[in-house]
Design a protein around this nucleic acid. Structure first.
Length: 152
DNA sequence: GCCAACGTTGGC
DNA sequence: GCCAACGTTGGC
């Protein structure tokens, strides 16, 4: 079992949007970064747990937990010329971009803010807190996962 | 293969 | 809205 963190801007798609989806499940589309793509394609497995992180908002931080409900498959939005995530270079026979499905597990009792996470020496090596980090999907170790949940 | 220009991310 | 950091693009 592996642990992950995925970022989304709550104005575009927040934890409550996921909670209100049919089956509380949604595909995580639109990722256009190779490192993140590789994780979705190769490493994220059914049942893996994922922190839902709200970015680019008033209070950036971890707001909930979801699980991987379907392993990597082609991001079909890349084939739709009318979609903002359209990528003419992605060939349906050999797709460039992948996505996973995620299912809502629960909302945390409070937001564990970026500010708070930054203050923890235990997390100083974590990709989320590295300067200039822009990865929208990243691994979380079991130790980090447990430590963060204990802050709740 | 280098690197400047450009676009995007995301905290503040 | 600003801007630093970073990834991508494309000329050479």
């Amino acid at each position: 079992m592996n642990y992950w963190l995925m970022k989304s801007e709550p104005e575009a798609f927040g934890i409550n949007d996921l909670k209100n989806r049919p089956n509380q499940t949604e595909h995580w589309d639109g990722v256009r970064n190779y490192q993140a793509r590789n994780m979705m394609r190769d490493e994220m497995k059914l049942g893996d747990l994922v922190f839902f992180y709200h970015s680019n908002c008033a209070e950036p931080g971890i707001v909930g937990i979801m699980e991987v409900a379907r392993e990597g498959y082609p991001d079909f939005l890349a084939f739709d010329p009318d979609d903002i995530h359209f990528d003419p270079k992605s060939d349906p026979d050999k797709p460039t971009w992948m996505m996973v499905d995620v299912k809502y597990v629960r909302t945390l009792t409070r937001t564990i803010t970026l500010t708070e996470l930054k203050q923890k020496p235990e997390l100083s090596d974590w990709a989320l807190l590295r300067r200039g980090n822009r990865l929208s999907i990243m691994p979380v170790s079991k130790q980090q996962w447990d430590f963060i949940l204990a802050l709740e």
